[in-house]
Each structure stands twice: as C-alpha cells, then as structure tokens.
Computed example of a mutant assay.
Amino acid sequence: MRKIGLFGGTFDPPHYGHLIMAEQVYESLQLDEVWFIPTNHPPHKEDAKSNGILRKEMIEAAIQGHPAFRVNGIELNRTGKSYTIDTIRDLQREYPDTAFYFIIGGDMVEYLPKWHQIDELNEIVQFVGVNRPGHSMETAYNIEEVEMPLINISSTMIRDRVANDRSIRYLTTPEVKVIIEKSKLYQR
C-alpha cells in the first residue's frame, strides 16, 4: 500500500515554510509522495488573492526537482467552497490501495473542531500535525505529530512585503519569486 501525504492550502504564494513542512513529514513518516493540493475556495478564510492556475504554477515551480513532490489540482476543478472531506472521499475512490495522511500546521490543529464533518473526516484519514510557532498541538482528534524547525514565514508576510516593495528573497524559491514579479502579483 502506498503512503501519500496530502498538503492542502491556498499556497498564495508557496514558501520555504511549506516546503520544509512537507519534507519533514515526508521523511518522518517515510511517505512515498507528498501531493500539494491548492484549494479553490477555502471554507475557513477569504478567497486567495491570486487565481488557482497561477497558484498551481507557483507550487509546481517551488517543488521542481523533488522526486516525491507532486501537485494535485482536484480542488481547483470545484465550484463553491472546497471541503477536505469531499477531497478525501474522491481520492480514496480513485486510489483505493493508498493510505492518505493529511498534513496540517499547528494553526489548523486548533481549528479542527470547526472543520466541516470533522468527526467523519477524523475516521477516514490520518491527520498529521506539524508544530507552528504560537499554536498548540493539543486536540481531541487523532493527530500524528511531526516536529519541524521553527520557520516563521507566511504567505501573508510575503504578500505584504511585495505590496510594500520589500524583498522576498530567501522567503520563497527564486522560481516562485519570478512568477510573482512577472505576473505582478500582490502589488498595490
């Protein structure tokens, strides 16, 4: 049975924190692959600042060269809010001989009680929680914890820096930086 990590998010833009998080889970759980799943319309926050096609392109650019990282655009094809339970059900039907591990940061561990159909979701997928500064990993749900170096980078920080004409060097990959500049993303 293959072991696949699923890493959902807006990735607006993807950054080194995302990549380190995925790598830590990949190594710690000895996964076969990690699939980055950009969401179309996240239920827990405002829509992304850039469109799904560009976010998918940025993720592909960020993970190029990693033999076990992939992008799965399953949620970009949906209209309306995109719920994790629907994604998991669809992937389990399509890949029946695969064990899925849903990767979330500490901020999302705290938010789990508010997730759509969380009790059923907790029964059908293994959550993997990765520590994040300022967030607790304590929860009533079944979470496998993975430690990672504390890297305090966020997509919001990157968008704010671009909007204020500040450098994002060393916060995201050079390839993502080129896409942001070329597409004039996040500028005021």
Rank of each mutant, 00 (worst) to 15 (best):
M1D: 01
K3L: 10
I4L: 15
D12G: 00
M21W: 12
E23S: 07
E27R: 15
S28L: 02
L29Q: 12
V34E: 08
F36I: 14
P43V: 00
P43F: 03
H44C: 04
A48D: 01
R55K: 07
E57P: 05
E57Q: 13
A61I: 04
A62Y: 08
H66G: 06
H66T: 06
H66K: 12
P67D: 14
P67G: 15
R70S: 11
R70N: 06
R70A: 13
V71Q: 00
V71Y: 01
G73F: 06
I74L: 14
G80D: 02
T84H: 00
I85P: 13
D86M: 07
I88G: 08
Y95W: 12
P96I: 01
P96D: 03
P96W: 00
A99L: 07
F102N: 08
G106A: 09
E110L: 06
E110Q: 12
K114T: 14
W115Y: 06
Q117M: 07
D119S: 04
E120P: 13
E120G: 05
E123N: 12
V125N: 11
N131Q: 09
N131G: 08
N131P: 12
E138P: 00
Y141N: 05
E147F: 13
P149D: 13
I151T: 02
V162Q: 05
N164V: 06
R166L: 14
E175C: 05
E181V: 03
S183L: 00
L185M: 09
Q187Y: 02
Q187K: 12
